[in-house]
Amino acid sequence: MRRIYPDIQDNPDIVQAYAYPEDRPWLRLNMVASADGAAWLKGRSGGLSSKGDKRIFQVLRGLSDVVLAGAATVRTEGYGPVKPRDSWAEIRAGRPEVPPIAVITRSLDFDLDDALFTDARSRTIVITCEAAPHERRKKAAKRSDLIVAGDEGVDMRRAVAELHERGLTRILCEGGPRINAQLSADDLVDELCLSISPMLVGGGAARIVNGEPAQVALGLSQVLEEEGVLFCKYTREHSHERAD
């Protein structure tokens, strides 16, 4: 792997390249897309990934306090509990050995007896709303750290504030596109880490932000490259000046 922007460097330190700011909370999106903007291939993101993308994916998880994802992404991608890695020992010093997964869901329509809830080293968080089915909420409260944020739907600002209250200020969001759209529309995104796969997909695949209209100005802060895959980091302009 090499860095090609803002300077040229072979074998850059990936942990340093993706380090979070020390002085404020930070919400980072991490997505992969084809060269023509598709967020998945045959319904899943894995077909767009590469060895370098998987390495960066693991570093980003290790650096984070919490991994945020929508229920559709959790179901489609087959999420399980995060497993500890030897390479995380230093970057997670003073924190739990793995970050928890936080699942955003209105319906609570997933298997609460799955390993994601029964075998997680860091207790899984479920973020839902008042309109969620009452019995499902009761079961979710037993299987997870349950957050109720919003009435008819999940209020993203309240959800993020609740994570901050728990000391989880370095948030890594892994999508999907509708969750990304809601976070963007609510002005909560500080950074986008985007892996661009050198393939054309076409068809009806969603873009990485799909749903509510949002206009978020980003500046290109870094580009890494490996085997034709570009790993771009875009940072919110003047993000440090916004209120936490």
Rank of each mutant, 00 (worst) to 15 (best):
R3H: 01
I4G: 03
P6K: 07
I8N: 14
D10N: 04
D10F: 13
P12M: 14
D13R: 06
V15D: 12
A17M: 10
A17E: 12
Y20A: 00
P25H: 06
L29G: 00
N30S: 13
M31K: 02
M31C: 07
A33W: 01
S34A: 14
S34V: 06
G37R: 07
A39M: 07
K42H: 13
G43V: 05
R44T: 10
R44H: 09
G47I: 09
G47L: 15
S50Y: 03
G52W: 06
G52E: 13
R55C: 05
Q58Y: 04
Q58T: 06
L60K: 03
G62K: 02
G62L: 07
V66S: 07
V67W: 00
V67G: 00
G70Y: 03
G70T: 07
G70R: 09
A71I: 13
A72R: 11
T73I: 05
V74H: 05
T76G: 07
T76E: 13
E77C: 08
E77S: 11
Y79S: 03
G80C: 08
G80H: 08
V82E: 01
K83E: 08
P84V: 04
R85M: 06
D86G: 04
S87D: 15
A89R: 09
E90R: 04
E90N: 03
G94N: 11
P99C: 01
I101Y: 06
T105Q: 09
T105H: 02
D114A: 15
A115Q: 13
F117C: 10
R121Y: 02
R121E: 05
I125P: 09
I125Y: 08
C129D: 04
C129W: 07
E130S: 14
E130C: 04
A131G: 11
H134K: 12
E135M: 11
R143T: 15
I147C: 13
G153C: 05
G153R: 14
M156P: 06
R157K: 15
R158T: 12
A159Y: 01
A161H: 13
A161R: 10
T169H: 09
I171S: 06
G175L: 02
R178S: 14
I179W: 00
Q182R: 12
S184Q: 03
V189Q: 05
E191T: 10
L192I: 12
S195H: 12
V201L: 08
G202C: 03
A205L: 02
R207D: 11
P213H: 15
A214V: 03
A217V: 11
S221E: 14
S221N: 07
V223G: 04
L224C: 08
E225M: 10
E225K: 07
E227T: 06
G228C: 12
F231N: 04
K233N: 03
K233M: 08
T235P: 06
R236E: 05
E241W: 14
R242H: 15
A243Y: 01
D244R: 11
